[in-house]
Simulated scan of single mutants.
Amino acid sequence: MSARARRTVAGLTAAALLTLTLAPGAAAGGRPFTTDLTGEAEVSATGVPNQGDLDGFGTAELTINPGLGQVCWSIEVSDVETITAAHIHVSPVISAGPVVVPLNPYASGCVDVDRELALAIIHDPSAYYVNVHNATYPAGALRGQLGR
Rank of each mutant, 00 (worst) to 15 (best):
T46Y: 09
T19S: 11
S74E: 13
G140I: 05
D53M: 12
I88Q: 02
A28D: 12
V48I: 13
N50T: 02
A27E: 12
A141V: 01
G109Q: 07
L12F: 07
G52I: 11
S44D: 15
D53E: 14
R7V: 05
P66T: 09
V43G: 06
D36T: 15
L37P: 08
A107R: 15
A118F: 13
G11P: 00
A23E: 08
A139R: 10
A107Q: 13
T19G: 14
L17A: 15
E76A: 15
V9R: 15
R6T: 03
A27S: 10
V71Y: 14
G56V: 03
G47N: 08
V111C: 01
V130Y: 03
E40T: 14
L117Q: 04
N104H: 05
L146N: 10
L12M: 09
P92S: 11
E116F: 10
G25S: 13
A14I: 08
G140V: 06
V130E: 04
Y137W: 15
Y128Q: 09
A107E: 14
G30D: 04
N50P: 01
G25V: 09
E42G: 03
N131W: 10
M1R: 03
A141W: 06
N104E: 07
R7F: 11
L103Y: 03
I121Y: 02
S91Y: 01
I83N: 08
V80F: 02
A96Y: 00
I75S: 09
G69V: 07
Q145H: 06
S78F: 05
V90D: 08
P102C: 01
E40F: 09
Y128H: 14
D114S: 04
A127H: 08
T21Y: 12
I88A: 07
T136A: 14
G30F: 00
G97R: 02
D55T: 09
S2V: 00
I122H: 03
E81L: 04
I64G: 08
E42Q: 11
P138A: 09
L22A: 11
I122Q: 08
A26R: 11
D112P: 01
W73H: 15
L146M: 05
A28H: 10
L119Y: 00
N50H: 12
S91A: 15
H123P: 00
L119C: 01
A26S: 05
P102K: 10
T35V: 13
A139E: 12
S91L: 01
L103P: 04
G11T: 11
L20N: 05
L68K: 10
G56C: 08
G140K: 01
A28K: 07
Y129A: 04
D79A: 11
L103S: 04
P24N: 01
I64T: 04
F33I: 03
A5I: 10
T8I: 14
V90Q: 15
A118M: 03
T19L: 15
R115E: 15
R6G: 00
P125S: 12
Y128A: 03
E116Q: 11
G147M: 08
L119T: 14
S108M: 00
F33K: 07
